[in-house]
């Protein structure tokens, strides 16, 4: 199979470089530079977006729960190779039924370079619940406001700028089915990963007694596993009595993760130095 090259429509994209090119690589994800996770509520078009980017044919269907396992594919955008992971839809990261566990574990322990949370423009309020929970875990979040065509048909207008300002992470309107907005989405993702766009995710405060409890736990977790990226989230989960997280902490899984992340860092800096010499 030869890779399919697509020139994306860029006329509505203010931030893109003049020339963008998407190359679908199907399941050939041998060596890649970055990993992107597709999270979101059920039935918001994650698999459709995944197919549009990778050229694969992950099944889609208009009912919540179509995807129940993790699927991986690759694409190349502006000469950077990405591995894209399509996850089962979840309403939240708290309940953890079997398909949801797949999604949660990947966002939490799979260490994606960036997580795209695909949301339904016609039910944004409901979808923001998950967005905020993902933002508790990781800073590298881009919100894709999908199903814009449906929203227009229903007379719903979404102001992505207001959304981005409030959330503290970029929000990009897209229509996965037609490919509208995908170029902007990809260049935004790239810029978030490269640190060109500063993200400052909104965090929900909670009651004062709750905050106090969290603030007592966070330093303990940080001193046990220095460099852990989401100590706050772990603290909240521990307070909630989350068996999975408790196990991760006692079994030392957490330490391993931090280490893996360090390795990635080391690799990255080695690459930087190599590239710097050239």
């Amino acid at each position: 199979m030869t890779n399919i090259k697509i020139n994306l429509p860029t006329e509505h994209c203010e931030t893109c470089p003049a020339f963008t090119q998407l190359e679908q690589m199907g399941i050939k994800v041998g060596d890649f530079d970055r990993v992107i996770a597709l999270a979101g509520n059920p039935n918001t078009g994650k698999s459709t977006l995944f197919n549009a980017l990778t050229g694969l044919k992950q099944h889609t269907g208009n009912w919540p729960g179509k995807t129940v396992t993790r699927a991986e594919g690759g694409f190349q955008f502006n000469h950077v190779k990405y591995k894209l992971v399509d996850l089962p839809g979840t309403y939240s990261l708290l309940s953890a039924s079997q398909d949801e566990e797949v999604a949660r574990d990947f966002i939490l322990f799979g260490q994606p370079s960036c997580t795209i949370v695909v949301t339904d423009a016609t039910a944004l309020e409901r979808n923001l619940n998950l967005v905020m929970q993902v933002m508790e875990i990781t800073d590298k979040v881009v919100v894709a406001v999908n199903l814009m065509d449906e929203a227009r048909r229903k007379g719903i207008e979404v102001d992505a700028r207001s959304l981005a300002r409030d959330l503290g992470v970029p929000a990009v309107p897209v229509t996965a089915r037609t490919g509208e907005g995908i170029a902007t989405l990809l260049s935004t993702v790239a810029e978030v990963i490269e640190g060109k766009i500063a993200v400052k995710p909104m965090r929900v405060e909670g009651t004062p007694e709750f905050q106090k409890a969290v603030n007592e736990l966070v330093p303990m977790i940080e001193s046990m596993a220095p460099g852990i990226p989401n100590a706050r989230w772990l603290a909240i989960r521990l307070l909630d009595g989350d068996a999975r997280v408790q196990k991760a902490i006692t079994s030392g899984e957490l330490g391993g993760i931090v280490q893996r992340q360090r390795q990635a860092d080391a690799q990255f800096s080695r690459k930087m130095s190599v590239e710097g010499r050239q």
Binding site: Y91, S92, L94, S95, S97, E125, R126, N129
Partner: peptide
């Protein structure tokens, strides 16, 4: 338990 979490998650 699970049902309560699910209810809350659904808003």
């Amino acid at each position: 338990g699970f049902t309560r979490r699910r209810f809350l998650d659904l808003g």
